[in-house]
Amino acid sequence: MSTYAQQTAENVTLPSSLDEAVAALAAMPSAVPVAGGTDLMASVNAGLLRPAALVGLGRIAEIRGWQYADGAALLGAGLTHARMGRPDFAALIPALAAAARSAGPPQIRNAGTLGGNIVSAAPTGDSLPVLAALEASVVLAGPEADREIPVSHLLTGMDPLRPGELLAFVRIPLLHAPQTFLKATGRTGPGRAVASVALVVDPARRQVRCAVGAVAQVPLRPLEAEQWVAGLIDWDGERTLAPEACTAFGEYVAAACIPDQPGVELPPAAVQLRRTVAALSRRALGRALA
């Protein structure tokens, strides 16, 4: 008598290639793609979301690894956080590996994917500030043609996913220089970021790029602070900075990300957040130039 067994099992497709997945989405526009399901299935279980159909991306082998292309790494969107956290990946893109290792408990890291982190675009998504600092771009597979856009365009909604499109790859330049990711959660165990800072040094372009996560809807880039600190660095020499410069950089980043409201005193919570961002940015820069 119960209808509980009749879950929407027949409405789940499990394509084994990107082309099949795109075709499956085109055939059923109301279907929702699902990778690790760590966000999506929680909403389904809570009854907040009732997708008419699901397209499972877990069997598409081509997006679960990575390859090299012209000095960049082309990461499959189906890479799990657990995989990104392993030492071989950490040697390639250390900040992304650090972010992946800090994301949730092991069960979540084993299932949650890079692509899922980008598409769900939670403000606290741990990989997002790293991708912003690295100026990564995303390859979107669609019914007509693939296209590639900067990750920030996707995150800010400037150039959103079009109907029928799937996030297939993430292109990340390989910098061969120090990069750091630091996250404050207020606890020792896994937790959502109160604030996080990704900082990468790009010696080829003589840049320091920094992005602050979790303090706004999307990762914030303090461009002026980046330029200021890049100007202080002796790129042909030791590439070190005095501690005072790191402190000043931290304050600069924090003030840029949590700006003063004209005529209004900052609420205590914002002062506290600014202090946290300043400490994280100072530490991140100090470690990258150590």
Partner: peptide, 15 residues
């Protein structure tokens, strides 16, 4: 070290 703040690496021994 397992520093306060956990494995995300934000902890700094000097602080």
């Amino acid at each position: 070290w397992l520093l306060p703040g956990g494995t995300s690496g934000a902890g700094e021994p000097g602080a």
